[in-house]
Design a protein around this nucleic acid. Sequence first.
DNA 1: CTGAAAGCGCTTACAG
DNA 2: CTGAAAGCGCTTACAG
Lengths: 338, 338
Amino acid sequence: VVIFSEITQKDIAKVCKVSRETVTKALQDHPKIARETKARIQAMAEKMGYIPNYYARNLASKKNKTIGIIVPKISHSFHSSVVELIYKYAENHGYNVLPMISFEERRNEIRNIETLMSMRVDGIIANISQETSDNKYFHQLKQRGVPLVFFDRMIESDMISHVATEDRKATCEIVSYGLSKGYSKPAHLAGYSNINIGRERRNGFLDALNKFNIKPNPDWIIEGGFSEELRYENARRLLSLKNRPDLVFCFNDSIAHSVYNAAEESGINIPGELGVIGYGNLALARLIRPKLSTVDLPVDDIARETVRLLLRQIDSPARNNVEHVVLKPDVIIRESCR
Amino acid sequence: VVIFSEITQKDIAKVCKVSRETVTKALQDHPKIARETKARIQAMAEKMGYIPNYYARNLASKKNKTIGIIVPKISHSFHSSVVELIYKYAENHGYNVLPMISFEERRNEIRNIETLMSMRVDGIIANISQETSDNKYFHQLKQRGVPLVFFDRMIESDMISHVATEDRKATCEIVSYGLSKGYSKPAHLAGYSNINIGRERRNGFLDALNKFNIKPNPDWIIEGGFSEELRYENARRLLSLKNRPDLVFCFNDSIAHSVYNAAEESGINIPGELGVIGYGNLALARLIRPKLSTVDLPVDDIARETVRLLLRQIDSPARNNVEHVVLKPDVIIRESCR
DNA sequence: CTGAAAGCGCTTACAG
DNA sequence: CTGAAAGCGCTTACAG
């Protein structure tokens, strides 16, 4: 049986011989409706397969209990994990969540913002695309009074809450560890410096060099290139330099993995001739040999704090409560530099 | 500046000194509005920061151009990849997509279905939870005329379109390969048999045994247990049997990885004393040693076909066009059984 | 305890 | 080319 026409409260009202409004109230378990009437109406609604119209309800009530998440990708374990956790935490607080993907393109990100605005979501959580280099559109959100929290990738701002990690410090720590093990020619396969995480990790790297009185060699710092091909190409380029570095700090573990491949190709031994350090502690870090030293991000804390900051803004919209949470990542020493 | 009140078409109409309806039409670039008026209204809307109300628009127009996706998880690379690709393909066809997560619980899955129904989405794509053993709620969707397509995990039905893979055949092929290499005591760490993929892979395993005239040993078939702990426990249990199998076909690559760990623990050599076969071709399959023989799923094809079947139902709702697409996975022989 | 009134913001024929 | 009318399905005070 195909039910062609949509069943509305009006239909139920007609069958139950009450007014439309009574149906509304019975369905929301309103205290002022007679128990018997309520039961009758609810049973009938169930029987008729009534499902409330989300749009009509939200339009009339002006409540939606919905938050949006914008991420550049979900097919990466960090992103999918955080999105899943945010989804879970937000749902536990009674919110629907709408995940949107920007595919690392600013154009899509803007479209996502607009879609979520048009949906009048109660708040937005965002992790910016690689192409994003200002907060123009996100600031508009704030101007309209839409609660907003950044996590991970962001353009830092006094106006916008965020949950970040101490990347600079963790990087300095792990690179210092490497340098303390006797490596003296450090290179960096870097992230984009327009985005906080690229910049922080780069600065942490430079901090460590500074601590060891090593002058950074510009030839040994290569920015960008995250596709499999580009990662490999950058690694090869680095390793085929006639003045070759003996330690590589990589912006993320995938890049580190490409360095492994390029090193194997060139017959360079890790960690003997080349130390390698990653970032992110992907599953692969424990699987590749030698096991990769890297930095572990507190995924669960990031998700939980992000939701907490957002709900706080939603619950007390009057106060302009911008909060910046900075979480501590874990340095994980394995076998790839010693 | 915080914009407290929402800007509506009425506001624009007042400023532009035209009627509300004219604003509507100007904004949708209606051909019957004077070019000059249109431009004036559009400019003003832009200037005032007008963003249409999604709910009002959908309620009034009865169009939404939105599809929902329900998956049990996104923090697994197969799921996150397929969801991301479906998202992309659907978006390319002009659809918004709403991904929802059931967290492997039927209760959540039902709630997701209801939410999407209340949103009157144009169609739903689903990958069922581990707890789901009938199509009761999904059939209701069909009864209401909501286009629906299953992919990967599903309860097969003549009433519901789906995109599946030839798991049984691929499994038989790869297990036969293992048996042809001299292993003779095959075990199976199996998926749940209430769901197609668990059943198909188990049947493929049995087909292969049958081909080689090997009687399945019930002690060597263990069903379920997907958490890291349970996987490891099952693997240990299997390997500590006094009559130990010499080949294990695993429902997925993660389980195979646990078998590696358990084997290492017990000093059992792979592939010498124990052959291991996985399923899914996760990134880890190439990273662990020996490299894992496994079956690769055509993720991109799955996503594309799923979207295609759904759009077909949306575009011609009158016909009851149930279609079943079955895609061919690739057997990938590496080093874990020989 | 029940219902009539007013409205949410937008769209779609229709008339002029 | 522009606007008045009717409506989408639901909710929220308010009156009785």
